[in-house]
Design a protein around this nucleic acid. Sequence first.
DNA 1: CTACCATCCTGGTTGC
DNA 2: TGCAACCAGGATGGTA
Length: 276
Amino acid sequence: MPELPEVETICRALRDELTGARIRRLDLHARGLRHPFPEGMADCVRGKRIRRIERRAKYILMHLDGGDVLLCHLGMSGRMAIHATIPAERGRHDHVIFTLADGRGLIFSDPRRFGSLELTHETRLEDHPRLAPLGPEPLGNHFSAATLSRALDGRRTAIKQALLDQKTVAGLGNIYVCEALWRSGISPLRQAAGLTESEVADLHGHIRAVLLDAIAAGGSSLRDYRRASGEMGYFQHDFAVYGREGEDCQRPACPGSIERIAQAGRSSFFCPRCQH
DNA sequence: CTACCATCCTGGTTGC
DNA sequence: TGCAACCAGGATGGTA
């Protein structure tokens, strides 16, 4: 479910609340979600302190004592919530429960079970099969108009598809791709390699801008997403196109209305009047 | 490379 | 009101 801004919002809250906390125990109430939980994960993390929490693409990385790293992906419906105490009754989709030494709980729940929780080590983090293929962080220094241009070079697939591909740039999903393309005035149907240099430069800037705007709003709360504190994000009110099929285009003086089409089985929302 | 398909699951919404 | 169809923010591996 969550895309980069939602994961970033959750990550910041977890970082504020959990850095330095010690894990008393980890209880797994499933064999795994998208992937099986690693053998011995609960034993490995027991008693360790959470040293540092960071985000890579849509993954939450929790660095523990000894260099072990928990790699968590929320999939489409995953939630991470901090509780002052462990609730007496386990929720239907609470698959992973961390009990901290101070009595608090961190609960990973995921109705659709597309999320994942894996264990690796700092020394081989970048080689991890989930992380190794990822493209640059869109808000990082290695993502520039030039690197985006290079990533799109020679790709005959639609720009919509190319941007959803995590190898092009990491962390975008359906919502923010639609929004960035609208802000850029570029049709999702355009061939990726066919964008002009100036269009790529616009797109690069708008990808960053829409992500920063969404992070500033605490992410977007559609069905499942909540911040780690349980609060909603608010960026869904600022969508220009996502989920706005039939509504008037918000671009000043544009008489168009938002259309929805399917690309590779996913919905694309755009204004055919001002996105070329 | 590319397009396309299926798959992992559950739950909310829509339409009859 | 009931029920079935459809839809969903993702990632991956297979096929042609």
